[in-house]
Write a protein that binds this DNA or RNA. Structure first.
Length: 572
RNA sequence: CUGCCCGUAGCUCAACCGGAUAGAGCAACGGCCUUCUAAGCCGUAGGUUAGGGGUUCGAUUCCCUUCGGGCAGGCCA
């Protein structure tokens, strides 16, 4: 069975621990902390020795005699209190690179496929997408891409906000606007503001709006048609943003709140039958012992309001039933901001209690921190409003265009535009994806729109440098063996060998930033190689070997950037 | 009041179930374009990982505590 590099080393060290009398002891293999310690280190001996009251150095000696790394490692030694330091053989690294080049999957093992539902983006269709929607949208999309590449069946679910009282107001205003010949739906934000203004200032309009809510929920054909029309326009806005962002969400991925509407009474009835939902102050609530309220009693999780209306909690319960029952999910990821952590804990707990979800299905809240301004408070513009996503993207492309034009004054405008799109959008996405999602992060135009250092353009630039080399090559032997003699060649090959483990980390931790750091390290090692090892000036077998390293680096960068949803360029 | 998340270099962030001397980018300073694209490379400087205590051979990581920030907690999502 094919394994990643760490999986391979880990299994070998575990086997050696086993042979040394420590059955079941974890090997704890990780990349070496420092170059002088080799390439990988196994830290498991210390723990195993402690558990068995043995001398760790002596145990390490034992383990090492049983450790079979023939053809893999060139040096294995014991250091410190009982570390096992492993240096990989250059021939082995070369063979990994050769294998990866011969494989469409770049040597990434195909794993046991799961059906993974990913709930992400989920904008409120009453308004326009703002910068706050960026994280869920691109983190979810990157996860979807990586999991698909690893071999899973990924089902994207865009749980849009398309239901509720605000749509009565919007559909009512849609009629007025159309009759007035003023269908200013190019700016949804403005449309919402004007509808709200009418609602607040004109009592008759407010009555109509409320009447429309009732009609909409009652299935009235005319209001329903209007509502659908509005949703369609709003979704077009979203899709324009997705398109520009390179996000793979499509219309068929939309399963909004309204989709579960008919199922909500069924969910509540089911919870009542199971004795979970009970009446409290006129509402239907589930008291969960696992969560305590202010008084230290079981916390109430409301599934139906006093007025008979349903809540977010109810539609999420219905959504879980759909995702299990119809979509047959093995794993469900909710890419939603961290403020809803409690809601999801309660949702997951109740879903299992109610038997909607079995132990076999994994439910994960992929939470992320909120975007803050320079002042450490939730991000707003100076006027106090939110920043539209399209405006951020526009600014990104404009800044990139200015830079591209500065660096390539003679280039045709159309080409400069193409480059500035990839660079600008890539920079915005990378600035977000490269951060650990769990903490809040500070939004800054300058760091988000920086094009040097640890940014997407750095990765794109590394790729174009390689393409530039290949444009200057007439003919070469693409089947040539790879030889690693220079330190920079060896380090680059080692980095290339880590690709699979980086992708595994993204899947395991649902954290795209592991892929970002990997690609940055890879690009850095390539830049060093590029400076230290002339490719075109070298000759014969050495030239071919270096070209093959370039080729694999380019493919890995291209694949990796594609998994982040960032475009590559041939020239920049 | 209760619970969750966070606090790492001047700034923005890393650090892979606890590992060896805590790493990058930006900003600062000094080098490198007659040699494959300088959006690059090399170097210097920058740290009591908020404070204190504990567990451990070993703690940014785990536990306790104080301070500081964010968020959530019965009819919003």
């Amino acid at each position: 069975m094919k394994q990643t590099l760490i999986e391979l080393l880990d299994s070998r060290v575990r086997a050696a621990l086993d042979a040394a009398g420590c059955a079941g002891a974890p090997a704890v293999v990780a990349p070496a902390g420092r170059p002088e310690f080799g390439d990988y280190q196994a830290n498991g001996v210390m723990g195993a020795a402690k558990a068995r009251k043995m001398n760790p150095r002596a145990l390490a000696e034992q383990v090492i005699t049983h450790l079979d790394l023939a053809g893999i490692a060139s040096k294995v030694e014991i250091a410190g209190p009982g570390f096992i330091n492993i240096t990989l053989a250059p021939e082995y690294l070369a063979s990994l690179a050769t294998d990866a080049l011969a494989d469409a999957r770049l040597g990434v093992p195909q794993i046991a496929a799961q059906r993974v539902v990913i709930d992400y983006s989920g904008p409120n269709l009453a308004k326009e997408m703002h910068v706050g929607h960026l994280r869920s949208t691109i983190i979810g999309d990157a996860l979807a891409r990586v999991l698909r590449f690893l071999g899973h069946t990924v089902i994207a679910q865009n749980h849009v906000g398309d239901w509720g009282t605000q749509f009565g107001m919007l559909t009512a205003y849609l009629i007025e606007a159309e009759q007035g010949g003023d269908v200013a739906l190019s700016d949804l934000e403005d449309f919402y503001r004007r509808a709200k203004q009418r609602f607040d200032e004109d009592a008759a309009f407010a009555d109509t709006a409320r009447e429309y809510v009732v009609k909409l929920q009652g299935g009235d054909a005319q209001v329903n048609a209007l509502w659908r029309k509005f949703l369609d326009i709003s979704l077009h806005h979203c899709e324009a943003v997705y398109e520009r962002l390179g996000v793979a969400l499509r219309r068929e991925d939309v399963r909004g709140e309204s989709f579960y509407n008919d199922d909500l009474p069924v969910v509540v009835a089911d919870l009542q039958e199971k004795g979970l939902a009970v009446e409290s102050d006129g509402a239907q609530v589930v008291f969960l012992d696992e969560f305590k309220n202010k008084e230290g009693e079981a916390q109430a999780y409301i599934v139906r309001k006093q007025d008979g209306g349903y809540l977010y909690a109810t539609s999420d319960l219905a959504a879980i039933r759909y995702r299990i029952g119809t979509l047959h999910a093995d794993r469900i990821l909710y890419v939603v901001d961290a403020r809803q952590a409690l809601h999801f804990q309660q949702l997951f707990t109740l879903s299992r209690k109610a038997g909607f979800v079995s132990e076999a299905t994994k439910l994960e809240h992929v939470g992320f921190g909120v975007m803050l301004g320079d002042d450490g408070k939730p991000f707003k513009t100076r006027s106090g409003t939110t920043v539209k996503l399209v405006d951020l993207l526009q600014e990104a492309e404009e800044r990139a265009f200015a830079l591209v034009s500065e660096k390539n004054a003679e280039m045709a405008e159309a080409e400069r535009k193409t480059i500035s799109q990839a660079v600008g959008i890539g920079a915005v996405k990378y600035a977000d994806l490269s951060k650990n999602r769990s903490s809040d992060y500070v939004f800054s135009w300058d760091t988000m729109l920086s094009f040097e250092g640890n940014t997407a353009p750095y990765l794109q630039y590394a790729y174009t440098r390689i393409q530039s080399v290949f444009r200057k090559v007439d003919s070469w032997n693409e089947a040539a063996p790879i030889t690693l003699t220079e330190a920079a060649e060896r380090t680059l090959a080692l980095e290339l060998a880590r690709f699979s483990d980086a992708l595994n980390a993204v899947s395991r931790e649902t954290a795209p930033h592991f892929l970002c750091s990997y690609l940055y390290d890879l690009a850095t090692q390539f830049m060093r190689f590029y400076e230290a090892c002339p490719v075109l000036k070298s000759e014969g077998a050495l030239r071919d070997s270096r070209l093959r390293l370039c080729q694999l680096t380019a493919r890995t960068l291209k694949t990796g950037l594609d998994l982040l949803g960032i475009n590559i360029l041939e020239v920049m």
